[in-house]
Design a protein around this nucleic acid. Structure first.
Lengths: 115, 115
DNA sequence: TTGACATATCGATGCTCATCGATATCTTTC
DNA sequence: GAAAGATATCGATGAGCATCGATATGTCAA
């Protein structure tokens, strides 16, 4: 049974007493997932919406082509930040609230451990 | 007089109501600064130290060459996350507490604005 | 089954960047 | 001023990635 390597699940607070190499890699991957303006915009659009958002409603505000937006949605999903839901032929995305709680814990230098 | 474009100073919360292109770029740059395992380790080492840390004490725990660590220290400093202090021929680094408060605000989806 | 349409994947391209050895710059000491 | 040692910069290299057009895959309606 494979260990879950989703960055949002195995990262560790920046102020963790003893950060392992694997935790440093996972934490960096989580940050890198947010290290692109298009992905920041996507997260912002989802964060300011009460409901899941159709992928088709992201191309125009993000300002990139459909394949590129799909690529970014995949990156965010792989990092564990997004939830995907199929509605007919449309794909709806929403933020993974738990992952975002963990992200907030990572950046909290008061550093309560998130295990 | 130039506007301050330091990512840690002009980024915006992920849940900001209206995120401008410039804010998205600044926020992404801040995350990208933390999107490398070596830089996560450096921040972790500084976060777990009461006092500023000599650059010479970072090469071994980070596991990279002196030029590479210097490169990463520069990236973190450019993002506004680090403070550099010269002590004789040694360079001492510490976390910029204000920048880290802003980072925490960025990831806080309750989204109080950081202007 | 066929057509229409939304999304994902593929292949190519050009740019960014992490890394290192070599070297320059800076600071102190003699 | 010269030597020693710490850090920053330079130049090169290889890997990763953002982007797009073209195409494949998936979904529904008729």
């Amino acid at each position: 049974m494979p260990v879950d390597l989703t960055p949002a699940l195995c990262c560790a607070p920046l102020a963790a007493p003893a950060l392992s190499d694997a935790q440093a890699v996972a934490t960096a991957e989580l940050f890198r997932a947010l290290g692109d303006p298009a992905r920041v915009k996507i997260v912002n659009l989802l964060a300011t919406s009460d409901e899941p958002v159709c992928a088709c409603d992201l191309y125009e505000p993000v300002g990139l082509s459909q394949p590129t937006v799909s690529h970014h949605l995949k990156k965010l999903s792989e990092a564990g930040l997004l939830h995907r839901e199929q509605r007919g032929k449309w794909a709806y995305f929403s933020l993974n609230a738990d992952a975002l709680r963990r992200l907030a814990a990572v950046t909290d230098l008061k550093g309560a451990c998130c295990s």
